[in-house]
Amino acid sequence: MSAEKVISVKELTKRFGDFTAVDNITFDVKQGEIFGFLGANGAGKTTAMRMLCGLSFPTSGEASVAGFDLYKNADAIKRNIGYMSQKFSLYEDLTVRENIRFYGGIYGLTDREIKEKSDEMLTQLKLGEQVNSLVKSLPLGWRQKMSFSVAMLHSPKIVFLDEPTGGVDPITRREFWTLIYEAASRGTTVFVTTHYMDEAEYCDRVSIMVDGRVDALGSPTELKEQFSAKDMGGVFLQLARKATRSDG
């Protein structure tokens, strides 16, 4: 794996009034990595991720994503990233095909590219028969897999996933991670937040946020050694218990 940094974050901070949601975080993510971004509810994961996606202005600090500066080149960043938010963000009153066409289209894909991509995606997801049904008629698991594929439509360098498997059954979760591995094997960097500790074990490297700070960073094996825990759940509990911030 090449050591090229695709995300580089230095002392990034976001304050909302008196409240410091993200407190001086520093880390790098390498190309092709699956980077797990862990933390209890309200630890600041989503806020940090939204800043990296150009949805929210940092209060201070520096960051570059896909080689572009977060302040100066947000549009260039947007062309190179995919984002799947916590909220389901496909149009429920459009069909599978129409959603693909819409999101492909606004990323500037041509009709032919959209056709190729959607054929590929529909075979991968085995959604061929549902292509003309409204998204609201699909079960949650399929919707989440579809959201992911839509976020990947324009072949971004980095894909940000915010709790992609929340509320999804174990089989679908497994399938979802297969999709993530496939994307990573094609060289896409995956930046993922999760609450599931078994998923944390699948990541190449993991950071754990507590009260807006990154308190631990390393591969799952390293972290388990460092905190002498037998699994990631143990690591997480040791750190998260120190949190003073209540659930947010």
Binding site: C53, G54, L55, D75, S85, S89, I106, Y107
Partner: peptide, 13 residues
């Protein structure tokens, strides 16, 4: 409300 605007804001539109 449904959150799709965020998905649009994250595109280079």
């Amino acid at each position: 409300e449904i959150g799709t605007i965020e998905q649009i804001n994250v595109t280079p539109i």
